[in-house]
Design a protein around this nucleic acid. Sequence first.
DNA 1: TCATATTATGAATCCATATTCATCTCACGC
DNA 2: GCGTGAGATGAATATGGATTCATAATATGA
Lengths: 197, 197
Amino acid sequence: MRLFSEKGFHNVSMQEIAAEAEFATGTIYSFFDSKEALYLEIMNEVADNVLSVGQPFLDGQADEREKLAGFIRASVRVFRENSAAIRLFLRANQRPVSQIGTTRFSKTAIKVHDTLQARLRQVYAAGVRKGTFRAFDPRVVALALDAALRAIIFSVAEDTDETALEQKVTDIEELFFRGILHDPWNRAAGSRAAADR
Amino acid sequence: MRLFSEKGFHNVSMQEIAAEAEFATGTIYSFFDSKEALYLEIMNEVADNVLSVGQPFLDGQADEREKLAGFIRASVRVFRENSAAIRLFLRANQRPVSQIGTTRFSKTAIKVHDTLQARLRQVYAAGVRKGTFRAFDPRVVALALDAALRAIIFSVAEDTDETALEQKVTDIEELFFRGILHDPWNRAAGSRAAADR
DNA sequence: TCATATTATGAATCCATATTCATCTCACGC
DNA sequence: GCGTGAGATGAATATGGATTCATAATATGA
């Protein structure tokens, strides 16, 4: 997982994986049928994790605004729990659809991405119907939120300074809610004033 | 350029490139020293294009809000002018720093990315000082805007329906300005009311 | 038109690395 | 202590694809 996330599928050799795992090259093949199978198994596990952490926040019975705020905070938690895995997952999923067939993607990983995007759109659309959110294209809102969170998480993952993550995600949250809420000043989530920095 | 952008560096063979270009394999080597050199030359050219279109908007003497709005609109124009090239450039640059040394990146492409990010931060920070924008972390704002634009451009590039791009980017623009402007209702850019959709 | 120089060709070479498998190790039961 | 087999080993093999280069095609100009 770590090797793939650092170097990418084609730049990691089975010899390298074997050495790192302290097994002989051949031994790896008693666990996995091929390099591809090994990679997909990692992808699937990571994808399942991401879904299991993120989805509950979107599915609960809280109001839409709380759901989105919960999802944003969940992204941070998932990242902290396993940054190498998430880095791998996010990188691989940066271009899911168009790369199908050209790069390696697990069905599970694609499904997870699509599922979360769909839920985000639904939650947002529900909020629009109830008059909580302004009416933008839900696809745009879901994509933009996801992309912005990724970018921030990545930038932090690159730095050594991971403590900055919470602050940055809070900024994203506030920026985002200001953008979509009808009444940004009545906020329970992402509240702390920003002008003091 | 098209092959690389669709399949990625390692999944394109020189034989394939030669066939597509209607040259013999060996002939390619009279133009470029290696596959790597060929790739880097493409990257550099694309990077230069991106910079030459995007930077003027950030450098002019307009106010900060106009600059950012201009940059957002420029992204669309750059994309329309050469969607294959931009797709390649954006994909390769999605993770510049951490992949240095592990994947192929041209110095130019990295510099272009950094330059634009730096200018975005400067413009935004200037707007904050003048009281036009709310005070978030400029790095977060620059990254989020860039990431959101990319995500939308990509999603449109994947669909066949490219006509939707303007509308979606307008949504991003409005979402973004609502997020950062102190007074979102006094807007000259990204104005059209959103509630009518 | 012909000799020569220039350029293009693509089969052959070479190399990196995924995969295999003959061999080795060693835990276990006797 | 010894025979046995499941599991581990890593050198050898197979494969894909980058690169080379002897040959063919084409252009030049006398």
